[in-house]
């Protein structure tokens, strides 16, 4: 079965003066449609770099990045926005909502980028907000929303235009654990019901039950990757496992 997104032997090297910093070193990872993958690792391990490369925000130094089988590594910088727009939705740690737009307008903006405007955009934005459980907050501005509500708007915005891949960077970091769990539950349900491949970067080991697969990254390399899905019941055991022995 073709992966929604697959990276193969990806490296990313930054130059820092005369020295070279290897942020990623031969990373292989593929995510299937409807699968929720948690990307875990200590700070500076390369999680966000990998997420950026998978989201076509960064280009790898070498290696292959395929989105639904199409090679995107090596594409010109100017071609990347169109790839992101067509295939990828993002959820950010700080929500990154537009404070001057209402919740509904934030979602409409994402639809507008895809060429969906006017009444149709409003209808779809309402539908998306309904899906994430805050349909009644359409006209409310981000400043008047709680953290959990903001993240729900961000998820609705990321799902606008039906992307195949949803990439989330620490989506629960700014939320309390109860709200964080509800957000991840929502993401998992959406992923499973809509067949969206989800990659979530997180430090939060309390949320592992929502992952179909865990990938641990350290010093730019995936450590002990496994392809088997994680049974929810095994999560607590994984939680207790020593760091550096990542499982999937």
């Amino acid at each position: 079965m073709q992966a929604a997104i697959a990276v193969h032997n990806v490296t990313k090297t930054y130059s820092a003066g005369d020295a070279a910093v290897h942020a990623l070193d031969g990373v292989d990872l593929s995510v299937q449609a409807g699968e929720v993958v948690f990307l875990m690792g200590p700070s500076g391990s390369g999680k966000t770099t990998l997420l950026s490369i998978m989201g076509c925000i960064l280009q790898p130094t070498s290696g292959s990045v395929r989105i639904r089988g199409r090679e995107v590594a090596g594409l010109a910088e100017r071609d990347l926005p169109a790839i992101r727009l067509a295939h990828v939705g993002f959820v950010f740690q700080g929500f990154n909502l537009f404070p001057t737009l209402s919740a509904g307008e934030n979602v409409e903006l994402a639809l507008d980028l895809k060429g969906i405007r006017g009444h149709e955009a409003r209808r779809r934005a309402q539908e998306l907000l309904d899906q994430v459980g805050i349909g009644e907050k359409y006209g409310v501005y981000p400043a008047d929303l709680s953290g959990g509500q903001k993240q729900r708007v961000a998820i609705a915005r990321a799902l606008a235009g039906a992307p195949e891949i949803l990439l989330a960077d620490e989506p629960t970091a700014a939320l309390d654990s109860h709200v964080g769990r509800r957000i991840l539950e929502l993401v998992r349900n959406l992923a499973h019901s809509q067949g969206v491949a989800v990659v979530i970067v997180t430090h939060d080991s309390r949320m592992l039950e929502f992952a179909d697969r865990l990938v641990h990254i350290e010093d730019g390399r995936i450590v002990a990757p496994e392809e088997a899905a994680i049974p929810a019941l095994a999560v607590s055991m994984l939680d207790a496992a020593p760091l550096g022995v990542s499982s999937a």
Partner: peptide, 10 residues
């Protein structure tokens, strides 16, 4: 916000 727009594919 403009960075976010760019990330979203604008």
């Amino acid at each position: 916000e403009f960075g976010t727009l760019k990330a979203m594919g604008a």
